[in-house]
């Protein structure tokens, strides 16, 4: 019944549409990514083992994990808070705040990096010298890298959570209140469970984005080999130093982590909706 009630295009139209889409995806996504995999494993696991044995790579992977996880945690806390603020409360400047959240999506990460340098640079930045005097080094160190990454991935949690909060509405929260729940109890027992999947999705997206961040991190990290190089920076450097196989191996690890994120979400999600 459902099948017959749907408008069906003629067969040739459907075939052409399908071909166009498949060709597009193959040329743009599948084939390049497949080549990375092929290049990584052209001699089995030899290159991967070599790459993983390289202390520069080891350090970069560790640093990437630290930066990405820190940025995701920060974005999770602020993302959920800002989402609640945007959906549940009225305050002057709300529209401006909402618009500002999209800035990281439209501004080039390189600009973000430079902007952070201007504020936190240890010699010329606004706060930089004061922080440096206090013994806190922001720029060319992990703190600025976390900030840059958090900045770039900021909208991802919020843009997932806001529509869900709007759709769920606040009646359940009001009901919880009338049944005696305070603000915190209402949040943990009612609000959070109902936006759980949006939060998970936002976290996974920002994790994937954080792992892959390049431009902003390159500017603020100083790209110091073995110290402030993340995985993406290592890929670029190794590639330019004619260590292609190492570059491909690290690139594969980055791609693999992102694919795992997406697979995990798609496995978890349908269970929830059944």
């Amino acid at each position: 019944m459902a099948r017959s009630s749907r408008v069906r295009e003629p067969l040739w139209v459907r075939l052409i549409l399908r071909t166009v889409v498949v060709t597009y995806l193959v040329l743009l996504v599948a084939w390049p990514v497949a080549l990375v995999v092929l290049n990584t494993f052209q001699d089995g696991f030899v290159h991967m083992a070599e790459a993983l044995a390289d202390p520069v790579v080891q350090n970069a992977l560790r640093l990437t994990a630290v930066v990405a996880v820190s940025a995701v945690v920060i974005n999770l806390l602020f993302g959920v808070t800002i989402s609640l603020l945007l959906v549940r409360y009225e305050f002057p400047g709300k529209r401006a705040l909402s618009a500002m959240i999209d800035v990281p999506l439209s501004v080039s990460p390189v600009v973000v990096g430079l902007a952070l340098l201007l504020v936190y640079g240890s010699r010329t930045g606004w706060f930089g010298p004061a922080l440096a005097d206090a013994g806190i080094q922001m720029v060319f160190a992990t703190p600025a890298m976390v900030m840059a990454t958090a900045f770039v991935a900021l909208p991802l949690v919020i843009r997932e959570v806001v529509p869900v909060l709007e759709e769920v509405g606040d009646e359940q929260e009001q009901a919880a209140r009338s049944l005696g729940a305070g603000g915190a109890q209402t949040f943990w027992r009612i609000t959070l469970p109902s936006i759980k999947w949006a939060v998970v999705y936002g976290v996974v997206l920002s994790l994937a984005r954080s792992l892959g961040e390049f431009g902003a991190v390159k500017v603020v990290s100083g790209n110091i080999v073995g110290r402030t190089q993340t995985a993406t920076l290592v890929v670029e450097q190794k590639y330019q130093n004619f260590e292609q196989t190492t570059a491909y191996s690290v690139a594969f690890l980055l791609a693999f982590a992102s694919v795992v994120c997406i697979v995990v979400v798609s496995i978890l999600r349908p269970k929830e909706e059944s």
Binding site: E171, Q172, Q174, A175, A176, R177, S178, L179, G180, A181, G182, I190, P193, S194, K196
Partner: peptide, 20 residues
């Protein structure tokens, strides 16, 4: 008094069931 201190039961038109 905030709603949680009034000891009233409230029933909404659209049920406001806790879906989870």
């Amino acid at each position: 008094l905030p709603p949680q201190k009034r000891n009233v039961g409230f029933v909404f038109q659209h049920y406001a069931a806790f879906k989870h």
